[in-house]
Simulated assay, not measured.
Amino acid sequence: MNRIAVLTSGGDAPGMNAAVRAVVRKAIFEEFEVAGIFNGYQGLIEGKVELLQLGSVGDIIQRGGTMLRSARSVEFRTPEGREKALQQLELHGIEGVVVIGGDGSFRGALELTKLGIPCVGVPATIDNDIQGTDFTIGFDTALNTVIDSIDKIRDTASSHERTFIVEVMGRDAGDLALWAGLAGGAETILIPEEKYEVPAIIERLKNGSGRGKKHSIIIVAEGVMPASELADILKREANIDTHISVLGHIQRGGSPSARDRVIASQFGARAVELLKEGRGGVAVGMKNNGIVEYDIKDDEGSTNDWKAEMYTLSKELSI
């Protein structure tokens, strides 16, 4: 193998640039040529490929977003689109690809591997919803962004004796809401993995008010319901007035935390080593604070074995 490539795909996550940097510099250290594929799989189809040098990734480790930019590609999901991508890889002499992104990006990596181009996945998503790894690149930074917001909202909630509903990202996975809610001392946390009962939420709010509590914070993952919908329910069923904060895309931006920079560097370097070994259809990850690799599955998704315990703990501590 003489030339490999790296691309970022799907939603951006803080630390993607650190991973790109690690891939490029580790590849050059291993005496590979390395190309950057811009705008994800769609850029690959369109031939947006450029050879990268050491200086190409200078001064990016501290930057959020991705220098390679990202895009979603409907075309790549078709056999015809993947064939175009394969032709571009062959045209540019690329023999392996490091794919940095989430579960959809990993499925694309698996498809290219099936077509004869070994691909290694590097998990990068603030949702932390990739099976096979305890943590994904970007989760720690996004988590601290959310916690910082909760702390500031709590100041206002306390000053004005109000109940706030904070909506965070997490369509299918509630890691961001759960970790932020527990770390931020939220009274109620709603995540897609756990059932909720409106009467229980109301009872918790009333119990807090009954013992003199002057404010409350409710964290809801977007996959459960919009914050506005929950506010309407609480008003209609219990005449409880709430204020809403939807954090939105602020959670995906910003300079990556030290932890995200470190694991991104570890993941990126290990991905290059796996390509050097001729491995494809695999991803790197972290288990018990160690770097691991595992096979990418067609049904990639998150596991929630530990989430039930954290969820229970959050309720016990917010009585």
Rank of each mutant, 00 (worst) to 15 (best):
M1W: 05
R3I: 04
I4T: 01
L7W: 06
D12W: 02
A13P: 00
A13D: 00
G15R: 02
V23Y: 05
R25Q: 15
K26I: 03
A27F: 03
I28E: 03
F29T: 11
E31A: 12
E31P: 00
A35S: 14
G36L: 02
G36N: 02
F38R: 13
Q42I: 04
G43C: 08
E50Y: 10
L51V: 13
V57C: 03
I61R: 13
Q62R: 15
G65I: 05
S70P: 00
S70G: 04
A71G: 01
E75R: 08
E75L: 11
F76R: 07
T78K: 13
P79W: 06
E80D: 10
E83S: 13
A85I: 04
Q87D: 10
L91P: 00
G96L: 02
V98I: 14
V98N: 07
I100D: 02
D103V: 11
R107V: 04
L112D: 00
I117C: 01
P118C: 10
G121M: 10
D127S: 12
G132A: 05
A142K: 03
L143Y: 15
D148N: 14
D151N: 14
R154V: 07
D155H: 10
S158W: 06
E161D: 09
E161L: 03
R171H: 08
L176W: 06
A177Q: 10
A177P: 11
L178F: 10
G181K: 06
L182Q: 12
A183F: 11
T188C: 12
T188Y: 13
I189Y: 09
I191K: 12
E194H: 11
Y196L: 11
E197M: 08
I201A: 10
K206C: 03
G212M: 08
K214Y: 08
K214T: 12
H215W: 14
V224N: 01
P226F: 12
A231M: 12
A231T: 06
D232N: 12
L234K: 09
L234T: 09
D241H: 08
I244P: 03
S245C: 15
I250Y: 14
G254L: 05
S255E: 14
A258G: 11
A258R: 15
R261E: 01
A264G: 06
A269V: 06
L274I: 07
L275E: 05
K276Q: 09
R279M: 11
G280F: 02
A283G: 15
V284S: 03
G285A: 05
G285N: 06
I291T: 09
D295S: 13
D298F: 03
E300P: 00
E300G: 09
N304I: 13
W306I: 15
K315P: 01
E316T: 08
